[in-house]
Design a protein around this nucleic acid. Sequence first.
DNA 1: AGGTGGCGTGTACACGTGTGCATAAGGCGA
DNA 2: TCGCCTTATGCACACGTGTACACGCCACCT
Lengths: 364, 364
Amino acid sequence: MANKEGGKSGGMAHPGGSRRNLRQPSIKDIARLARVSHPTVSRALQNSPLVNAKTAAKIRKIADEAGYRASAVARGLVTRRTRTIGLVVTTVADPFASEVVCGVEQTANDHGYSVFLADSNADPERERKVVQAFAERRVDGIIVTSSRVGALYLPRLTEMMVPIVLVNDQYPGAFVHSVMIRNLEGIRAAVRHLIGLGHRRIAYLGDQFGYQSDAERFAGYREALDATGIPFHPELVVHGDGKPEAAVRAMETLLSLAIPPTAVCCYNDMSALGAMQSIRARGKRVPEDISVTGFDDLFFASYTDPPLTTVRQPMRRMGQLAMEGLLKLMAGEESVVKIEVEAELIVRGSTAKVSRNANGNRRS
Amino acid sequence: MANKEGGKSGGMAHPGGSRRNLRQPSIKDIARLARVSHPTVSRALQNSPLVNAKTAAKIRKIADEAGYRASAVARGLVTRRTRTIGLVVTTVADPFASEVVCGVEQTANDHGYSVFLADSNADPERERKVVQAFAERRVDGIIVTSSRVGALYLPRLTEMMVPIVLVNDQYPGAFVHSVMIRNLEGIRAAVRHLIGLGHRRIAYLGDQFGYQSDAERFAGYREALDATGIPFHPELVVHGDGKPEAAVRAMETLLSLAIPPTAVCCYNDMSALGAMQSIRARGKRVPEDISVTGFDDLFFASYTDPPLTTVRQPMRRMGQLAMEGLLKLMAGEESVVKIEVEAELIVRGSTAKVSRNANGNRRS
DNA sequence: AGGTGGCGTGTACACGTGTGCATAAGGCGA
DNA sequence: TCGCCTTATGCACACGTGTACACGCCACCT
């Protein structure tokens, strides 16, 4: 017996050893050291009431000293739950996405879940690999933050019979749940604010055509216009791609108009960044010549010159809500998660009363 | 036999089923369908030359039709390699970190690895949980992007006998490898640039005291000063925390000086953002009154007003290099990874020749 | 005193995959 | 025809954990 013990424990890993990956102690190693069977160790470490308190304490002490960490992979195999979720974003480099990721990750960790991060980069091949990886990893749930997801690969995701929560996107389907910002109300508040400042020629600088959130924000823009009786001018609607570079070009189009707008309502803060630069490049000033609004309230919004008036989106909170919803779905406590969060207009310095001579050619 | 088959396959998951998590098909299900043993399926799916080409093709077809995905968790249990890495950042919300994450993730995915993301938030309790999670998940390697890591929990990380690569931090220890930017040369280039523009009173707005990268950048600042014979004034050195808010306050200190600096060399772009706002708030202009430089070249650097002169750090590339190094370490192809990447000065509009009356009181 | 029940522990198995080894089939040379 | 080699396949086991079930022990009640 003692002989066997010596022989077997010879291969045990020890901290600071010169060779790596010798072997981490297993539950059986601990059982041998504690002179009990391995199920008793398992129960002791799970604080099961089935095991004698003194024995449990002794086992926990030994396990701790040996630096024992139960293998989540072995546990996952037998319990059929990995306590793992997959998180898909188009790219973490986008500040909106990274805030959501932050919220998701914190909440997941607080509940003992680990998160697999994958960015799709809107590349179909990469998306295919992401889905495959999540399937093989046997994630318990999935969160997608990517306005591009649409019909692209969601069907393949649903195949793995696991709850999926979408952040700021919607897709009609079986296992699909979502956390959304009230896009329409948010933009409407921004446009109303501009109208209140006397603006009548208000442009909309959107995202790429066909995205749900862009469509909703555009709808909010239209609604605010209509409600005030301001006619809609198609030439005042341009499209970027949600990033500054494209917004610069889109803004140039607006500035080249025979009668340029006196205010621009941007799809998001990144676009507003490009728009403002474009306006400066034309020798015009924000907000004296043109007012600008954004959407998201990213960290830099209060540090632009002038500080950006924008619609705040509680991004981290949305990540948290998505994860909390997913937890309920995975536990079966909820059969559907459909959350809408409020958008809040933050008025800063990039919007001002329309200048007297700007709207001079007001003919509408 | 047929009886048993019918009985067993009754529980197989099928796409679009109303109940979730019934069961995903296992390798044995595929084996039964293909009328072979499960090891043959295993070999066929690994493209092993041991299995007959026709049989393999048939098996692959059946597996594909059944939507079979081999369980990475079961595989990990037997192979003792999870093809999984852990990635620690203080917070993904930091644009620098998210760029690195992006590079790491892409490279990892390209090589069949999945990444567990965890942000520590510099919270000891959370860091403890992160380490524990990575240990239990049996990650094959770890990448840390966090200037705070220092002596905090790295010792605990090394206990799990797995290679660890640090990005922009260093720590003397057994399993520790790193990818670093040439901080000293980078800042030196920025300071030289300022000196070349005639500046003599150049301030350094650093990160929190004690961080390796801050120490190196400060050293670069000192070195450039010394090389030109410009005396060092301790009052021109202030500390923020790498974020805009703290930089605002630090900059106010500098502006309140009897003889304020004509140029500020910031630890990073985020700090520069705060510094520029602080300067504007005092009614001074950038770069006419005060020149400002940053570090990182984050996405917004070209969109500030004026665009920010900064030291570019190839963040995504650094993430890629870290992952590539880790891959080699895990494969045992390399015993030590120590990479230094070049910093590049990007001159934009936030730096200009010192104004004549600004350095009027030049007494040094 | 014998039956009963609770408590603590061990035994046996399962989870899904990879792999060393044995084995069956078939071809070929002696 | 026999033996040997190659090729293709199956068998048995291992990985580390959780859990249903059986079992032994002791106290207690009848």
